[in-house]
């Protein structure tokens, strides 16, 4: 497959995001025709009489925050996954591997267990997500230059530890009140989106994404391995920790508002790399946009397929796994030799 050039690839994914966004605002239990959606969105600028008030309410107050949250979370996870795969020089790494997802889960689960408000839910996910990273840092401290393998193993250790604590929290939770709340939150959803949550997610996700985007070319160099990166004049250890902190911000922000949504951070960067190649100057923006497209699509399915809501974490895996499998089979040689 020929690799598209950078502007083409970014433009195609950006247009795709606009299209699925308009469709996502249109579909649901209260369908709003596509041209009305466009009318609502542009009415601020032009004024539109053809749109009814209920339609305006549904689009602006109900679906728009949810759409924005799906874009932020999906894009953030796609970008974080791509950055981590470069950092660990392994196309099969995902944000779960550094233990931050598990840490953030514990923070959120604790807040739900103690019946604290949504501010504590978000704050807890944040604080514990970042403490997972701090723990990882302490575990690997003192090893000169913190070699990559040590960080990967440390991430597995930290992740397992926090997962065990999450299990403990669900075990002691009241099976009639807090347990269902914790379980549903952990399964992942953007159904409870509000404009406040959008802002809360936007700050860490966009901050982390900005740092990673600024370092996009240096990620190429880091992905060569510590020795080559150092011989070319880069400090690989400092670069790796910068990327880890930035991805932790993204992952903690995403988990805080939407629970644990797996697979996006693994599958999206992988598919993007098969399409545009491994150069992070183009891979990173494409991964962000494609992750956003994917999660908007999945969320639209989640709320329209059945009368109830299907958790996002369930759908991303159910759709992601077979698609990933087929693509791996079709591209076996390419992926394993030089993904």
């Amino acid at each position: 497959m020929r690799r598209p050039n950078t502007p083409t690839a970014v433009a195609i994914t950006a247009v795709a995001l606009v299209v699925v966004s308009v469709v996502a605002l249109s579909v649901g239990r209260y369908p709003v025709p596509l041209w009305h959606v466009v009318g609502v969105v542009t009415s601020g600028a032009f004024g539109s009489d053809s749109v009814s008030d209920p339609e305006r309410t549904v689009v602006i107050l109900v679906r728009l925050p949810r759409l924005l949250l799906a874009i932020l979370v999906g894009g953030g996870l796609g970008l974080a996954g791509a950055a981590l795969q470069a950092t660990f020089r392994n196309p099969l790494v995902s944000p779960e591997i550094i233990g931050v997802s598990a840490g953030a889960s514990l923070g959120g689960a604790l807040a739900l267990l103690l019946g604290l408000g949504s501010i504590f839910l978000v704050g807890g996910a944040f604080v514990f997500g970042l403490s997972a990273l701090a723990l990882l840092f302490v575990l690997t401290l003192g090893r000169s230059g913190t070699p990559m393998l040590m960080v990967v193993l440390g991430g597995v250790v930290v992740g397992s530890f926090f997962s065990a604590l999450v299990s403990l929290v669900t075990y002691v939770a009241d099976p009639y009140t807090t347990l269902p709340a914790i379980v549903f939150w952990l399964l992942g959803s953007v159904a409870t989106a509000t404009s406040t949550k959008v802002v809360i997610a936007a700050v860490p996700i966009l901050a982390g994404a900005a740092v990673i985007m600024l370092l996009r070319w240096r990620l190429n160099v880091l992905s060569l391995g510590d020795e080559e990166a150092e011989s070319l004049g880069m400090n690989p250890s400092r670069m790796r920790w910068t990327i880890l902190v930035a991805t932790s911000l993204i992952v903690a922000g995403a988990v805080a508002v939407s629970g644990v949504i797996g697979w996006v951070g693994l599958v999206i960067p992988h598919l993007a790399r098969m399409w545009v190649g491994p150069d992070h100057r183009v891979l990173l923006p494409v991964s962000f946009l494609a992750g956003a497209v994917y999660l908007v699509l999945i969320d639209s399915l989640a709320r329209t397929m059945t009368a109830g809501e299907i958790p996002l974490g369930v759908l991303t895996a159910m759709i992601g796994a077979p698609v990933f499998f087929l693509l791996l089979r079709g591209n076996r040689d390419r992926i394993w030799d030089h993904a």
């Binding site: 470069a86 020089r89 392994n90 196309p91 190429n220 992905s223 060569l224 391995g225 020795e227 080559e228 011989s231 070319l232 790399r273 190649g277 491994p278 150069d279 030799d337 030089h338 993904a339």
Partner: peptide, 15 residues
């Protein structure tokens, strides 16, 4: 100093 390591494939297929 320009260091030239022994050539290995590498994880990603850069041009």
């Amino acid at each position: 100093i320009g260091f030239v390591p022994q050539a290995r494939g590498g994880a990603f297929a850069y041009r």
